[in-house]
């Protein structure tokens, strides 16, 4: 079977070529998409940042390797968080941080006297009547994200007891870490 074509004149041929280019591009792209390795969709990032999803190991791994993704999550967290505690001042980077503070709250870190390997993280809200945050997220400079679900505030204070080697605590003590309270 044969299809007979009368090739159009040069002017029409240019239009035909444009149509061909579009079809070809689409076909090539759709074919390539079948083989492509999907990454992390922004909607997935939003679900995690907004707390709709609390565990997403693939996302956390991707954040450590994809600086653009990490920038996106930081910008998103900064926008939707109850309070954002930026990286601490460089002048005091010699020792571990024990206090972070914003207009809305202060985060204090106190070692336990009873158990030296344990540490209290105390979030003191400046307005005790304010809606308290429910989640603490740390974002380290290398893209590592840690998440801690917070207990309910009592009298404007949220207190968590952590082991001294807990990843969240290590991040909190790091001057280069940004902290988001949701």
């Amino acid at each position: 079977m044969t299809i007979q074509i009368n090739l159009p004149d040069d002017q029409s041929m240019a239009t035909v070529q444009e149509h061909f280019a579009d079809e070809d591009n689409v076909r090539q792209t759709l074919t390539a998409m079948r083989e492509a390795e999907p990454t992390i969709a922004f909607s997935r990032l939003w679900r995690f940042a907004s707390g709709e999803v609390t565990h997403d190991a693939d996302l956390l791994t991707a954040l450590r390797h994809d600086s653009k993704l990490a920038a996106d999550v930081n910008a998103l967290l900064q926008k939707i968080s109850w309070s954002h505690l930026p990286q601490a001042a460089a002048a005091s980077t010699d020792e571990d941080l024990r206090l972070r503070e914003t207009d809305l709250c202060a985060i204090r870190i106190e070692s336990s006297r009873a158990e030296p390997d344990q540490v209290y993280v105390i979030i003191e809200l400046k307005d005790a009547e304010a809606n308290a945050p429910r989640t603490l997220i740390t974002s380290a400079a290398g893209g590592t994200l840690e998440r801690l679900e917070l207990p309910a505030a009592q009298g404007g204070v949220i207190q968590v007891l952590l082991q001294h080697d807990d990843a969240v605590l290590i991040a909190l003590r790091d001057h280069g870490t940004e902290v988001f309270l949701r």
């Binding site: 090539q28 390539a32 998409m33 079948r34 492509a36 390795e37 999907p38 990454t39 969709a41 999803v53």
Partner: peptide, 22 residues
């Protein structure tokens, strides 16, 4: 590899196509 493909673009389109609901 077919010539001239942008892996980043196709990966992005595949990411959106592959995005899943809960």
């Amino acid at each position: 590899l077919e010539a001239g493909k942008s892996s980043e673009l196709t990966a992005l389109l595949a990411t959106v196509a592959d995005a899943t609901a809960m």
